[in-house]
Design a protein around this nucleic acid. Structure first.
Lengths: 208, 208
DNA sequence: ATTCTTCTGTGATAAATGTTACTGTAGGTT
DNA sequence: AACCTACAGTAACATTTATCACAGAAGAAT
């Protein structure tokens, strides 16, 4: 019940919730699963009920440039956007914490736009917030240097999990920022000297 | 007539065209006009009938980081996205070639989604294509070095205007790529030596 | 305890980009 | 012609980021 549609999407009307439960397919995936690849055609919209999915852009060299995370109560904007033409995905989606999702066939997603006001509003709000998030990413890489980007990255993480400890290795961070591990280590060390963080193995504690 | 809704938006149904002409306000703006600022509230959706609008992200130092251009037959996705909550704009919009636009109050834009299939499809397609464009921008700054970005930038420009000559000063290019003029000059010189371009005052000719 | 693997720290060096400072040139203005 | 201004070229240097090379530390596996 904790991972129901009703709980995670409180703005959905009760008819919409019923329709989703009737037509959607609940599925679970383990951490590490790639749900979507660049160039793949999209057949479903995904509503997240449990877990965490990472949306990123893949570089030629295997970089996994982080765009944003999807968490319970959210949906994949890309899959929604690609609706009409069942276009190719331009991004990668990877499960980072075991997830349970509700899969919705694209035709329905489109159909409901006309039938359910709360669905329409949810979709528009999803577009808006994701677009904004991507704009913020652009801001960061266009105008900020690596040390600022790293600080921002850590803050985002701790905000998302609601705790001050970010459990990631330097290598993972480097991959998501498309830089090298050494650079991350060095910058973190400087941050530690400035009293901003406390470093442990596989864990960074934000101090303010 | 050349700059009518009908001509520029051929997919709109005739009822929709009529509704737009009845409810929208046609307005013209000179090159240089700022149509939208970061932090400003949005009250209208804009359909472009003539001219060119630049959508960019402004840096603290006055950088004008180019996101994309809007041309006849297109609409501002940001304004559409901010509909529901009449949210603040996250970007800047500046007229670069005298434009004529059709202004549509946001309530109507929202209302028509339900009433006109061709409007709905247009809006969704606008979201999709702009999102993609921004993702491509991210790709470029995240994974490519300045020389590649410059080449890409020039190609985009010549594609957009349909001609091989890009009429911009090095300074303007530098501003849009958020780098310095000297860097642009250097890289362009190298490109000229590689036989990719021919440089003239205020004009760069692409050779292939 | 010993071995292995992964993670972290750090110096040395290279490459890319940004900054400063100056020169020359084309075109417009007086 | 003389002057002005915007634009373009380039050298020298600073800074940032990337890469290479290696060493030590933490934890897991045997």
């Amino acid at each position: 019940m904790q991972h129901s549609i009703k709980n995670n999407f409180p703005n959905f009307s009760s008819e919409l919730v019923a329709t989703i439960e009737e037509n959607g397919t609940e599925q679970s995936f383990e951490a590490g699963t790639i749900l979507m690849r660049t160039g793949q055609y999209i057949k479903n919209t995904v509503l997240i009920l449990k877990g965490k999915i990472k949306i990123y852009r893949e570089g030629e060299d295997g970089g996994e440039f982080l765009m944003y995370y999807l968490q319970p109560g959210q949906a994949c904007a890309i899959s929604m956007i690609c609706t009409a033409k069942s276009e190719k995905s331009q991004i990668m989606a990877k499960v980072v914490e075991d997830v349970t999702v509700m899969m919705i066939p694209l035709q329905l997603m489109d159909k409901w736009m006309m039938e359910h006001r709360s669905w329409y509003e949810f979709v528009i709000e999803t577009y808006r917030s994701r677009f904004e998030e991507v704009l913020e990413v652009v801001d960061n890489i266009a105008f900020r240097s690596m040390d600022e980007r790293l600080e921002f990255y850590l803050k985002r993480h701790s905000d998302a999990c609601g705790c001050a400890e970010v459990k990631l290795s330097h290598q993972e961070i480097a991959t998501e920022l498309n830089t090298s591990r050494e650079v991350v280590s060095r910058l973190l060390k400087k941050m530690e000297q400035r009293g901003l963080v406390k470093l442990n193995r596989n864990q960074i504690e934000l101090l303010k």
